[in-house]
Design a protein around this nucleic acid. Structure first.
Lengths: 155, 155
DNA sequence: TTGCGTGCAAAGGTTTTGCATGGCA
DNA sequence: TGCCATGCAAAACCTTTGCACGCAA
């Protein structure tokens, strides 16, 4: 489908290197494409999609699919997808900020799910969605949310 | 945009009732549309999208955005979006099955994230990805996963 | 009667695919 | 040299939007 990854090409190296160099960035395929251009490496959109697909499949890159109509975001996930063993990611649905959380409670959760529920959580693919403190306060300042649709400023 | 929800119409009632009646189903807008047809209620696709949008906004329905190219899935979330307070969803990345997990560890996690990390997890939007027991065993039996892409049966 | 809700069709955007060319091994 | 990867363009896809008609209140 997306190739086998047997060859090492200029484009793939550039994509991986960019993601590695910007581990905190979470960008869409198109944004990555543009970023590469800005770095002087021209890569076709299809190639970016294909490479990203492979990297996600290999666990090297994480993919978040936010709301439909927004496009998926990608982010470096660590060498073999093993580095983020007890490393959850929280994404604020309001401001889009990505938080990296590491602590014992998560180890516990993992163990619990594995033992009690026979489910192996894949940290490379999992993102917890919610609201961060600053945004929660901002939202609290605008209490009405009943029959009115709040349009949290697009973008 | 999606209407105000002031009117009670045949279509909206049917949509909500179907979701209520199938609380464990997680279906796309189109699948819901088809299901309604099968139930003898004909509802236009746009209407389904619009109604779903409103319901998600009101917290009555949960929306998962799985992988791109698959379409978002919707599921009933309980009366006021409050019933699934400590209800995580695990989705197996191999077979696509959605598991509903409710237990104290998750309450604990929520509390922890809220208190220690000032992050309010939104259960309606969060799905943990990983591998379920049957699939993990199946994968163990086929160790190589390099150049082969496993296509989990659609639906 | 008023105005919202509906449905069709068309537009919008993202992601995927086909095919010929170029590059890695 | 053989095969894979690339890139362009077109297709496929889901979702949103515009507009005229029907229905709820």
């Amino acid at each position: 489908m997306s190739g086998t990854g047997s060859y090492r090409t200029r484009q793939r190296a550039a994509i991986l290197q960019y993601l590695k160099t910007h581990p905190h960035a979470h960008l869409t395929a198109e944004e990555l494409c543009d970023a590469l251009h800005a770095h002087g490496v021209s890569v076709g959109k299809s190639t970016v999609y294909r490479a990203l697909d492979m990297l996600v499949d290999a666990g090297v890159v994480r993919r978040f699919t936010a709301s439909p109509g927004e496009g998926a975001c990608y982010q470096y996930a660590g060498g073999d997808g093993m580095q983020c063993h007890a490393h959850f990611h929280l994404k604020c649905v309001v401001c889009g900020t990505l938080y990296h959380i590491e602590c014992d409670h998560l180890d516990e959760l993992t163990a619990h799910l594995g033992i009690q529920h026979s489910f192996t959580v894949d940290y490379a693919k999992t993102v917890l969605y919610g609201t961060c403190d600053p945004c929660r306060r901002a939202l609290a300042a605008v209490p009405k949310k009943d029959s009115q649709k709040i349009e949290p400023d697009p973008t």
